[in-house]
Amino acid sequence: REAGDMTHLFSIIVLLLKINATKSCSGVSLKTQELYLLVFVTRYLDLFQSYISLYNSCMKFIFIVSSGCIIGYMRKHKVVSQTYDAEQDTFRVAFLVWPSFLLAAVINQKLSVMEILWTFSIYLESVAILPQLVLLQRTKNVDNLTSNYVFLLGSYRGLYLLNWIYRCLTEEGYRQWIVWISGLLQTAIYCDFFYYYLKSWRKNERLSLPS
């Protein structure tokens, strides 16, 4: 789990570094970033309500603030915002948001606003990368930082899968089917990307996804 959290954190650092160092967000999907902000805000509504650990609270805070930062850069920064590929980033996010919300309203652990929003965030996260993957496929010569970002972001849920297997074996009564199935789907969506990422990495070439 720690490795998963760190990979998640590194993915964000890599993305912020890329944007800040190159003053460019080309190849980065604003739609995916906005979906992630929605995921974090709806999942971490309990930030001020239930305290688990300083670590958890800090990470929640970092995830919300950093995705807000990335969106701010892409929308408002006078240099960076001009490098955003708006014509290419055309995924219709309503097709991800509404089904996730309806599914969360039907399949959840408890019928309450907080619980439905939390479940919604789990479902939405599992598909939030799709606009980014579509944009990558449309971009020729994806830069290394962007492909590293997607690789780290994809690895994070994969590492959580290992954590869940471990917890399931060692903790009595530890079951969370909604999170497990969503996490499996989330990782499966990256399989194709992982294949081409590792292939280009081995050949020491820039990543380009077949269209």
Binding site: D5, D46, S50, I52, N56, M59, K60, E115
Partner: peptide
């Protein structure tokens, strides 16, 4: 009442 499950992961 109790939350549906302890949400101790991120």
């Amino acid at each position: 009442d109790e939350p549906a499950e302890a949400k101790d992961e991120l």
